[in-house]
Design a protein around this nucleic acid. Structure first.
Lengths: 137, 137
DNA sequence: AATATATATTTTAATAATTGAAATATATAT
DNA sequence: ATATATATTTCAATTATTAAAATATATATT
């Protein structure tokens, strides 16, 4: 492969990667439209939903922040009655953040703006996308 | 479609979307490995590369921040001699941020960690991914 | 059982990043 | 000329994040 081809590939990668990021950002913006939640707050809610709650440490890892920042993030969502802290019985040092009833409803409602057909399409395509991406990451 | 199917689709969408975000985050982390640049700084450099520079306003829009924050972001990259400000002659109110020679080299070098085969694969797959995503966004 | 060490989270003071508003500079319209 | 609009920077105030100490619980060692 020529040096020129290589440069060209690098450009394509940059361009396409940025497009993917833009699109997934746009998706979150679409979801959070009209909500008074930051992008990260919304992502955390989704994350809590699909993981059935997360330990503080897991949240810190996920967002690459310090434990102190997690405490503050969760305090805010707790004040909004979207998240609650549950101490684990097996290891009482651990605090698990879980969605409140209210939080569950909020998350479900985010998707009401999409038609059923749209939801079907999105589920199919996003799955395909991940399958594709798996080949390189 | 049953109510249950719908809930199931929503769950798939959340899960797959979060996976995509994770993967593109991972990619940026991989790129910035060993670099003393934040994720956003790195993304800005790539963005400047593929757009041949950007106006301050465009940077603000892209990152959804205020103009003041853009000034501060660019000050830092300017201090690192990765970015320079160029006043536009057609409209001297406008400042365009462009990569310095140094910045260009830095961006190119980020991709040296990948083999040529890997670059080819990534370019192909990321293009396919965008084509797929185009169907829903 | 008592003690030491390790782990998980919170608290707090200091630092860094971001905002909103005013200031500066240039453009455009009347 | 003058007024209005746009682009960026400056700056004080707010908000978010960190690093380190404090608190609480667990596990290992003697």
């Amino acid at each position: 492969m020529s040096k020129d081809d290589q440069l060209h590939h690098v450009e394509i990668i940059m361009r396409e990667m940025l497009k993917i990021q833009q699109k997934s950002k746009m998706f979150v913006e679409l979801l959070s439209e009209g909500e008074s939640l930051s992008q990260n707050q919304l992502i955390l809610l989704l994350q809590l939903k699909i993981n059935d709650g997360m330990k503080a440490t897991e949240v810190a890892d996920f967002f690459s922040v310090t434990p102190g920042a997690v405490t503050s993030m969760c305090d805010k969502l707790e004040k909004l009655d979207l998240v609650q802290r549950v101490r684990e019985n097996e290891d009482r040092r651990v605090v698990k953040m879980v969605l409140t009833k209210n939080g569950e409803i909020k998350v479900q409602n985010l998707f009401l703006k999409f038609s059923q057909d749209k939801l079907t399409d999105m589920a199919k395509i996003l799955s395909d996308v991940n399958q594709l991406m798996q080949e390189i990451f």
